[in-house]
Design a protein around this nucleic acid. Structure first.
Lengths: 224, 224
DNA sequence: AATATTCTTAAAAAATCCTTAAATATTTAC
DNA sequence: GTAAATATTTAAGGATTTTTTAAGAATATT
């Protein structure tokens, strides 16, 4: 699955060059042109951040702090400074790596690949993402638009089943088998009620979008 | 406490220079002049390895593998090659960082310091902090808001497990495995009672805040 | 051996979740 | 367009799980 990289870089020329390089190598990119803009653009869909340190406005340290506290993904700093003192401070803040400009394209790609490999091995394999929705199978937590979703066990299992098969219709019979472990009687309304509650909770985080579609007479599905 | 660094480097001049540099900066050093010698010299007293890749004899990859399997400490490769392909392979083998020769002394020191800090932070650190809570694994003492928390062994282990995974739900089954060392029978109430007592003790130090959240049907967690 | 502490069990109370049922709304079929 | 079938929503009762309390069993300490 394609990874998304957030580029925070004030020099348009460098930013464009980076974006092109990364897209040519199979990544998706999001560009921000200042630290504050970068913090705003950062969210659950971002897998790694390329951060230029010499940005106007907020200090680099502040930005790293804000980014990390919002969503903890690897940060690689691209910097022209040769000041080693700075570098040490950054490491202690949580920066994962840095490259000094002008950088070698292949080296940059290698470092990005290394960082992504590290993070996917540990956490991401146990999570299901669907649009702004993230389900963590390890600890039964869920977030939508980075807001916590408070789901009961049955609600979580139901949403997990749907999110694991986005765009595919899950028949009621399949859902009862998977989530409830028994066959449904024809007049059973339990599933409907659970869907209703899920929609209500999802709407609180995403007022604009309808996630769960009903397939009349058959079951439910998440929109493609 | 002073850290010991193993220098694996066949060029005597560079080796001596490195050793001098590191000793001047408060480290102890051990020198080896080939890969095989390096693997032999490696043991429990070594905290970090500086490894020259262009060694005669065994391949660099083999050496890294042998070193890591003997005692897993950070390895920083010092290398003259600019071949990026090599670098990627090394990352996947477990090399933590690399510097290209000729290297800047200060940069090398910064990277060493960063790696050592990481490993002490993760492994050697014997305290767990969570909000106003501090758990000391060495002597099984705990404080909350600087007030001593008098915890029994099971209570400490339980709180330790939760605090080591803040925000994550620990399933009952996991908790029984970790704290009690046996599978729980379905109607076992022991864990619930311990949670109850923990909450009571925590409330005495933190009347305002509820630390332990229950995840219905699944387990418990500390709030994010 | 006696005492103190901690752990477990049991039972009642409280909280939460699940299901049912009924009323309303929507879609499909004729 | 109307009737039938299916879906949605709400509220309430029932079922399940958790919390709390207390007492007895197990373990550790003096």
């Amino acid at each position: 699955m394609s990874k998304t990289i957030l580029i925070i870089e004030d020099d348009t020329e460098i930013s464009n060059m980076l974006s092109l390089l990364l897209r040519h190598n199979g990544y998706q990119t999001v560009c921000a042109y200042s630290g504050t803009e970068g913090v705003l653009a950062h969210g659950s869909t971002i897998d790694l951040i390329l951060l230029d340190l010499m940005l106007p406005g907020k200090s680099g340290e502040e930005i790293v702090d804000d980014l990390k506290s919002k969503h903890n993904v690897p940060i690689i700093v691209t910097s022209a400074i040769h000041d080693v003192g700075k570098k040490v401070d950054l490491f202690s803040l949580g920066v994962d790596d840095y490259v000094t400009k002008p950088f070698d394209n292949d080296e940059l790609l290698a470092r990005i690949a290394a960082r992504l490999r590290m993070s996917t091995d540990t956490v991401a394999s146990q999570t299901i993402k669907y649009k702004a929705l993230i389900l963590n199978k390890n600890d039964f937590t869920a977030t939508c638009n980075d807001m916590p979703l408070d789901l009961s066990k049955r609600e979580f299992m139901l949403l997990e089943l749907l999110a694991a098969n986005p765009g595919r219709t899950c028949t009621k019979s399949l859902i009862y088998d998977t989530v409830w472990d028994y066959e449904n009687s024809a007049d059973d309304n339990t599933l409907n009620v659970h869907i209703s509650k899920l929609r209500k909770k999802l709407k609180e985080c995403c007022p604009d979008e309808e996630y769960i579609e009903t397939v009349w007479g058959i079951g439910y599905r998440l929109k493609k």
